[in-house]
Design a protein around this nucleic acid. Structure first.
Lengths: 151, 151
DNA sequence: TCCTTTTCTTTGCTAAAGTCAAAAATAACG
DNA sequence: CGTTATTTTTGACTTTAGCAAAGAAAAGGA
């Protein structure tokens, strides 16, 4: 049983590692095709239309430092993709939200990124897709809670 | 059916994205704890004891440029973790291999990295672990073949 | 043999990604 | 009102990465 765990852990470690490299390459390619820096694409992907975010919210959900986020937002602001206003309730906070231009772009981005994955997934069975979903979902949960405990 | 694909693709896109961010944070943490740069850790993880590699072999299996690899190897060489000798058969080629020190470190690294994943996986069932394995394995295959076609 | 072309690696330069520590601005607390 | 805490930004720096050109060696003609 302990042996079984070790085997499984080893195999999963290896696979996850390879998957990571491939997905990073995929993200880089996609960002480039859309004229975005990878960091910008990653940031845009997590902001939802109509919502506002503080710098730290974005930083922690991207697992980056606030100062890094300031710069990423600088870039998006310069391209008029996001707005940045001081919060009235607490003027230390920034309120970052998508502009109309940003909303349009993010909509397109999400659609095309999902379409890219659709292209990859189209030739396998529904149940295999479900296996992928379940497996990644489980793994994501584990890594995520592990991170919370260990950072 | 098409709708089903779209749903599944969307969900998988989202999850994979989150998993990626978490795993990157995990790698960064682990590398730091072992006094390595992330790129160095990633490189060491793929070289096997006793084997020799050319710069391009390493570059392509890490999805990086040869020039980037030259620098990563520079660093590992400076720490006496790898040897770099000119191939006798074809002196354009470098032959990169682990030193004894490197082998010891890589052994420890692989063991501890697998143990870290074991820690994450220890509280779930064997069948859930198998689901993770299957899901990630399928996904890795898809992304990998997609990359080959699209780069 | 000598010249050209090709292949593999390295070097120089540059950009992008990211962190840390200190500063600036504001809020909150005694 | 002064001190402390919080949020963001700035400056300086490191790490990661690629491109183009140079260097070095092999391979192929003529």
């Amino acid at each position: 049983m302990d042996v079984k765990l070790k085997q499984q852990a080893s195999a999963i470690t290896e696979l996850t590692f390879d998957l990571l490299r491939c997905c990073e390459a995929k993200e880089k390619l996609f960002a480039k095709e859309h004229g975005l820096k990878v960091a910008e694409f990653r940031c845009l992907r997590i902001v939802e239309a109509g919502k506002t975010y503080s710098v730290q919210e974005l930083a922690s959900s991207m697992h980056l430092s606030p100062s890094r986020l300031t710069r990423i937002i600088d870039g998006l602001f310069a391209e008029k993709l996001v707005d940045r206003v001081q919060s009235i309730e607490d003027r230390r906070f920034a309120k970052i939200s998508l502009t109309n231009k940003g909303q349009t772009l993010v909509g397109k981005l999400k659609e095309e990124y999902a379409a890219l994955h659709g292209e990859m997934l189209k030739d396998i069975s529904v149940s295999d897709r479900d296996k992928i979903y379940q497996g990644i979902s489980l793994m994501q949960g584990l890594v995520s809670t592990w991170l919370v405990k260990n950072v």
